[in-house]
């Protein structure tokens, strides 16, 4: 009797994003990196009305049990953040590189994607660059070019990860059931 999903629609902008949502750590944090990219549709056009949420372990692979994501105190790492794409389809988080939560598996940031036109939320993972695909159960289960859609690229500010909703370079989306 699971409750079905529905699209987030076009009018979430005044309701869900909030000040500080994209800042899991302060920019001055010694390990702060930027995780950013563009959300693209099947025509390769940017999606200006998407909402992305990330959930991740800290740098040591610990899962935070701390509240405070909606009113950040600037010190507590809650592991969760939310960012809307802007009119150019880009999003940006300030966070840290996660540690692996499972020994030997590749570390990743869990990502939820919502958008107008998308009838249900999508789950995916943002893996750090330079992983050993063979050692990870998900990356090794995918053809190489599909696994690569889950890997962020290094850029001068940190990590770049585009979300491609549809098409040849479509991001791998996950089913956890």
């Amino acid at each position: 009797m699971t409750t079905p999903g529905q699209t987030v629609g076009p009018f979430f902008g005044y309701a869900l994003p909030y000040a500080g949502g994209e800042q899991l750590v302060d920019r001055s944090h010694p390990d702060a990196i930027r995780l950013h990219g563009t959300v693209l549709d099947g025509a390769g056009d940017p999606v200006p009305d998407a909402l992305l949420e990330i959930w991740q372990a800290d740098g040591a692979g610990r899962v935070s049990r701390e509240p405070g994501s909606l009113h950040r105190d600037g010190y507590t790492f809650t592991g969760w953040g939310r960012a809307a794409s802007d009119r150019t389809g880009t999003y940006s988080f300030t966070t840290v590189r996660p540690g692996a939560t499972e020994p030997g598996h590749a570390p990743f940031i869990a990502l939820t994607v919502l958008a107008r036109g998308l009838l249900d939320r999508l789950f995916t993972r943002v893996y750090l660059p330079g992983q050993d695909f063979a050692a990870d159960p998900l990356l090794s289960a995918l053809p190489r070019e599909r696994a690569e859609t889950l890997c962020a690229a290094t850029d001068p500010e940190g990590l770049r990860f585009d979300v491609v909703l549809q098409g040849e370079r479509e991001t791998v989306f996950l089913n956890h059931d």
């Binding site: 999606v47 899962v63 958008a115 989306f173 996950l174 089913n175």
Partner: peptide, 20 residues
């Protein structure tokens, strides 16, 4: 609005890890 915004490939099964 869903025409260009729905994935065309089947979702990949992944066993949830600790964080998930």
């Amino acid at each position: 609005s869903s025409l260009l915004r729905h994935p065309t490939k089947d979702p990949q099964h992944a066993d949830p890890e600790t964080i998930e």
